[in-house]
C-alpha cells in the first residue's frame, strides 16, 4: 500500500515515498519515482487512494464513472499539472514561488477540485527550503485540500506506524544523518508491522543547496 513520510531537521527537509505502482492486487512497477522536484528548492511527494479491486471492470465500460477518480492515474495527472503551473510561474515572474505560496496554490487547486464532478484523490507532502527566511518548511496536504504546516508528516497506512515513532524521535535540530536514521526507523517499523508493506523507497532531501536524492 502506498506510503510516504517527511521530516524537517536543522536546515533541511527529508521526503520519502515508496516506489511501487500497484493496480488492484497486482504490482505493476517497483521503481516509480513519486517525488516531484517542483523547483530548485521544492519537493512534492504524491500518492493516491488505492484503486478499488473492481476498478478494471468499471473503467473500460464507463469511462465517465465517478469511481474513475479513485484510479491512481489521476495522481500523476495532478502532479504534472502542479509541476507545470509552478514552472510557469517561475518563467513568467523570473523567480519561483516560496514554499508557503506554492502550498497555498496547490491546496486551492485541490479544494476547487473537491467540489467538482471528478475530484482528484491525491495526498501530498510539500517539502521546501525557503530562500527568503532560510527555513526548511513542510506541509501536509490531503485530497480534501486540508493544509497544515508540520515538523513531520506521513500519508497512507504507514502513517499509523510512523507518526508515533516521529513523535518520539523527531528533533528539529537534528543533523541530516540523524534525520535519515529517524526515517529508517519509520521504514523498518512499517516493513515489520504492515501486512502490505512496500519494500523500496526513494528518499530526497532539500536544503539551502537545493534538492538531491539520497541513498539510504
Amino acid at each position: 500500500m502506498e506510503t510516504s513520510f517527511a521530516l524537517t531537521g536543522k536546515g533541511y527537509v527529508i521526503v520519502a515515498a515508496d516506489t511501487t505502482a500497484a493496480r488492484s492486487i497486482v504490482k505493476m512497477k517497483d521503481d516509480q519515482d513519486k517525488i516531484k522536484e517542483l523547483g530548485s528548492h521544492l519537493l512534492m511527494a504524491y500518492s493516491g487512494e488505492p484503486g478499488p479491486s473492481n476498478a478494471y471492470i468499471i473503467m473500460p465500460t464507463q469511462p465517465t464513472d465517478p469511481l474513475l477518480s479513485f484510479y491512481s492515474g489521476d495522481t500523476i495527472q495532478f502532479a504534472e499539472y502542479v509541476e507545470r503551473n509552478i514552472r510557469l510561474y517561475q518563467i513568467r515572474h523570473l523567480y519561483p514561488l516560496r514554499p508557503s505560496a506554492a502550498a497555498s496554490w496547490i491546496r486551492r487547486s485541490l479544494a476547487v477540485s473537491l467540489r467538482s464532478r471528478n475530484a482528484f484523490t491525491v495526498n501530498l507532502l510539500i517539502g521546501g527550503y525557503d530562500l527568503a527566511d532560510h527555513k526548511p518548511t513542510l506541509y501536509w496536504i490531503d485530497y480534501l485540500g486540508t493544509v497544515v504546516e508540520v515538523p513531520f508528516a506521513a500519508h497512507g497506512y504507514g502513517s499509523y506506524f510512523a507518526l508515533s515513532l516521529l513523535d518520539r524521535y523527531h528533533n528539529p535540530d537534528a543533523t541530516l544523518e540523524e534525520g535519515l536514521a529517524t526515517l529508517k526507523r519509520c521504514i523498518n517499523e512499517v516493513s515489520k508491522r504492515l501486512v502490505v508493506s512496500p519494500d523500496r523507497y526513494k528518499v530526497k532531501v532539500v536544503d539551502k543547496d537545493g534538492v538531491r536524492e539520497v541513498e539510504l
Binding site: R107, L110, L114, G145, T146, V147, V148
Partner: peptide, 11 residues
C-alpha cells in the same frame, strides 16, 4: 469544522 473549509473560508 472541516479543515479544508477552514482555510477556504478564512481566505
Amino acid at each position: 469544522g472541516l479543515g479544508t473549509d477552514v482555510t477556504t473560508l478564512y481566505e
